[in-house]
């Protein structure tokens, strides 16, 4: 079980219809690659976030497959167009089966 995992997202709370907004996400995670060995020479098992998905009102925005070479605390920044008021749902999938979720509402007005 990965410890100290904490998702963070930064989404503007307001936007105009059709606006392109910048979204930043970061999840603190040690992202153990599975390549390293401990002091006794045993392989430290892989433990990473392997998938990151963002949906807006049920429609997929991005879907990222992540590999072991990705650094600790993976940071994603991307742009999205918001046609209407709705919820961005962020989901991170951990190797250990844990799923971390976060939701942010953007109000279009």
């Amino acid at each position: 079980m990965a410890e100290g995992v904490k998702p963070r997202v930064k989404v503007p709370s307001k936007a105009s219809a059709g606006d392109t907004i910048t979204i930043k996400t970061l999840i603190s995670h040690q992202m153990e690659s599975g390549q390293r060995k401990d002091d006794d020479g045993n392989t430290i098992p892989r433990s990473i976030i392997n998938r990151f998905v963002v949906d807006f009102n049920g429609e997929n925005v991005i879907d990222v497959a992540m590999e072991p070479a990705i650094s600790t605390n993976p940071f994603f920044e991307f742009e999205a167009t918001v046609p209407e008021t709705g919820d961005f749902k962020f989901t991170w999938y951990d190797d250990d089966g844990s799923v971390y979720e976060e939701t942010k509402t953007v109000t279009v007005g």
Binding site: R8, K10, K24, L26, N73, F75
Partner: peptide
């Protein structure tokens, strides 16, 4: 602060 990696340790 969201971009500044140091803020993780501040937290």
């Amino acid at each position: 602060d969201f971009d500044n990696p140091a803020m993780l340790w501040v937290e």
